[in-house]
Amino acid sequence: MDETGAGPLAGHDRYDYSAIVHRPGYAWPNGTRLAVYLGLNLEHFAFGEGLGAELAPAGPQPDVLNYAWRDYGNRVGAWRLLELFDRLALPCSLIVNAAVYDHCPELPAAFQARGDEIVGHGHSNAERQGALAEPEEAALIRRATDAIARHAGAPPQGWLGPWISQSHRTPDLLQEAGYSYLLDWCHDDQPVWMRTRVGRILSVPYPQELNDIPAIVARKMNADAFADMVIGNFDEMLEQQARGQALVMGVALHPYIVGQPYRLRQLRRALAHIAARRGDIWITTAGAIAAHAAALPAGTVPGDVPAGTATNPAD
């Protein structure tokens, strides 16, 4: 009990508190201390039912306006972003709904041909996995993983839940399904080990601030303001990494949003600013960040425990 007579607040027991200023220093593979990755979300939505981001308030189903606006991303926006990434020589982590392979398989194949990483993103962003019972959630993860593996040639190592949706057991289920890292938790600027019921899984920072859905759809930011936010965040983290801390900066993008021409022009400005400093940073993928962090000496990454240690995370 604290002095008010109340007990401790409910917790998750996935990781302990760790102040970033008190952690061991380390560097990324090229000797720099700021890793930057682009997380590009390829998503597919059911027509006439389910969830989906909205450009305008939804009308009765079928909600043609918002469905078609989202479909623009796969038909046009993602291809323009691919051209931009090629022009600036930027890799990306392609965060893929498995349903995309049914809808437009040539799109993820074009990114994979560049050498981009494929990250699991459930079946469709028309649904949330966190509301499912454990057997159904495990089955969804398995089906999505198997579908991606069939098309990509190997199962993904990383996962981002549709709508950042998790149940109390999602980290356990992902670790048991063979995933080495997840992106759902935006609680840090460094990778953090999370406890699971039969071991551990790495949390790699994925942004909810440098993310076009919260910024542009939810907060109604203009395209130039979003680009300025990306540039400002990058410049500040460049200064912060000079203190000897290895940091991660992700930029979360959705083709139906930043693939719109006027937003694409502003995004190009922000990414060119980052690319111009490539000698001072590590431009990479979320999976490469996870692999490097996992190979660091014991005790370097917050939450480090021996692999295979059984834990009992709280429900």
Score class of each variant (00 low, 15 high):
230 V>R: 01
231 I>L: 01
44 H>A: 14
20 I>R: 12
202 L>S: 10
61 Q>Y: 12
268 R>Q: 14
32 T>N: 13
236 E>I: 01
82 L>R: 15
235 D>F: 00
188 D>P: 09
200 R>S: 07
179 Y>D: 02
295 A>T: 08
282 W>Q: 09
228 D>H: 00
288 A>C: 00
308 G>W: 14
57 P>N: 05
9 L>I: 14
57 P>M: 08
112 Q>K: 05
31 G>L: 02
311 T>V: 05
36 V>S: 02
93 S>T: 15
302 P>A: 09
146 D>C: 01
122 G>L: 12
176 E>P: 07
268 R>L: 03
155 P>C: 07
76 V>A: 08
275 A>S: 14
1 M>K: 11
286 A>K: 10
250 G>Y: 02
206 Y>V: 14
152 A>G: 13
186 C>D: 12
269 R>A: 09
291 A>Y: 03
210 L>K: 00
266 Q>Y: 03
32 T>P: 00
134 E>H: 11
229 M>P: 02
98 A>G: 15
132 L>H: 06
187 H>N: 15
140 L>C: 09
283 I>S: 05
315 D>P: 04
2 D>S: 11
265 R>N: 01
136 E>R: 15
232 G>S: 03
232 G>C: 02
243 R>H: 05
289 I>E: 04
76 V>F: 08
59 G>D: 09
258 V>R: 01
142 R>F: 01
234 F>M: 01
237 M>H: 02
256 Y>R: 02
253 L>K: 07
